[in-house]
């Protein structure tokens, strides 16, 4: 049972500070959750802390690849609005 950080991660550090298990490492090009340490916060908090503070939609997924913060859930921008601007890769 462990969560996974994917390539959408911007390396902002927010999750590092809040993980109760110190399971997150600042790897390059994006951060990594050590599966053996991650408990998904069960027993510590009602919600997985990394996903509770992560500002990037889709960057944290569960073992089945399902995003804990799906597109549109954090910014409130409807996903259909995002398409024309190719925001995910914009200006990188």
């Amino acid at each position: 049972m462990a969560l996974i950080i994917n390539h959408l991660c911007t390396g902002c550090d927010a999750c590092l500070h809040v993980c109760p298990n110190d399971a997150i490492r600042a790897e390059s090009p994006y951060y990594l959750i050590e599966a053996v340490l991650c408990t998904e916060c069960v027993g510590d908090h009602a919600k997985a802390q990394c996903a509770a503070i992560c500002p990037i939609e889709g960057a944290i997924v569960d073992e089945l690849g399902v995003a804990l913060n799906p597109l549109g859930s954090l910014t409130g921008i409807p996903p259909y609005k995002l398409h024309p601007f190719h925001l995910v890769e914009a200006h990188s």
Binding site: C12, D13, A14, L16, H17, I53, P55, T75, L87
Partner: peptide, 11 residues
């Protein structure tokens, strides 16, 4: 780098 709120004028 980390932030603890989201503002609607920020990406």
């Amino acid at each position: 780098p980390a932030c603890n709120i989201q503002c609607n004028y920020c990406n």
